[in-house]
């Protein structure tokens, strides 16, 4: 058996135990999936506080609807589906009633944000090169944040969770052809937005 399938079966079994009232089983699932869920939320929402709140709400939703759980798909697909729907709906709702700015936030990225620099090569790089790369990252994140919601979500699910088109389709509730179309358009839009940097050979 595929090791991944075995893990998936275990997770489904845990969720069935949660359905029967086993809160300890839910704690296990929580710790196992929390980082994935909150990271997905963060990559989509691009705000730490909102991402953490969103992740809490996802787990609350799963917990509160445990009695109705039916294992029609793997548990990972199930939790991703809930997370994706929550992000898409949450952001849509916040756009209608904004309490904080959801545009690509310079207010999310501090000038001295060390987390940005962690991914940059620090050795043998001049301060100017580091500054340029930091600016590039900011531009990339801005471009991603400006993508339409579903395109952005498809990009994140493919690039960071490395889901197949079929899994992305299951998660987002669309066909494989639709996923292909979303990714194609997203990549093309990003190419146009970042074209200048490509021409200059920065990327």
């Amino acid at each position: 058996m595929n090791p991944l399938e075995k893990i998936t079966d275990q997770d489904t079994e845990l969720m069935l135990r949660v359905k029967a009232g086993d809160s300890e089983a839910f704690s296990i699932l929580f710790e196992k999936y929390y980082q994935k869920v909150v990271s997905l939320c963060w990559r989509y929402i691009q705000n730490t506080e909102l991402a953490q709140d969103a992740a809490q709400e996802v787990f609350l939703k799963i917990f509160n609807t445990a009695k109705k759980y039916r294992p029609t798909a793997s548990f990972s697909t199930y939790i991703y589906r809930i997370t994706v729907n929550h992000c898409l709906n949450e952001l849509r709702e916040k756009r209608r009633h904004p309490t904080i700015s959801l545009d690509y936030e310079a207010n999310n990225i501090n000038q001295d944000d060390s987390s940005l620099l962690e991914s940059l090569p620090s050795e043998n790089q001049s301060p100017r090169e580091i500054a340029i790369k930091k600016e590039i990252q900011t531009e990339i994140r801005k471009a991603i944040s400006e993508l339409p919601e579903k395109q952005r979500m498809a990009i994140i699910l493919k690039r960071f969770d490395n889901l197949s088109y079929e899994k992305i389709g299951e998660t987002m509730g669309c066909s494989v052809g639709a996923v292909d179309s979303l990714l194609q358009r997203a990549r093309y839009t990003l190419l146009k937005k970042l074209k200048k940097n490509f021409r200059e050979g920065i990327f």
């Binding site: 980082q35 909150v38 963060w42 690039r159 960071f160 990549r187």
Partner: peptide
């Protein structure tokens, strides 16, 4: 190249404390 840029742009995901969250 765009695809690789996406990773660079979003690679630095903050670490979240799962125990505290739980």
């Amino acid at each position: 190249n765009v695809w690789e840029s996406v990773e660079r742009g979003l690679a630095s995901t903050p670490q979240f404390n799962a125990i505290e969250a739980r």
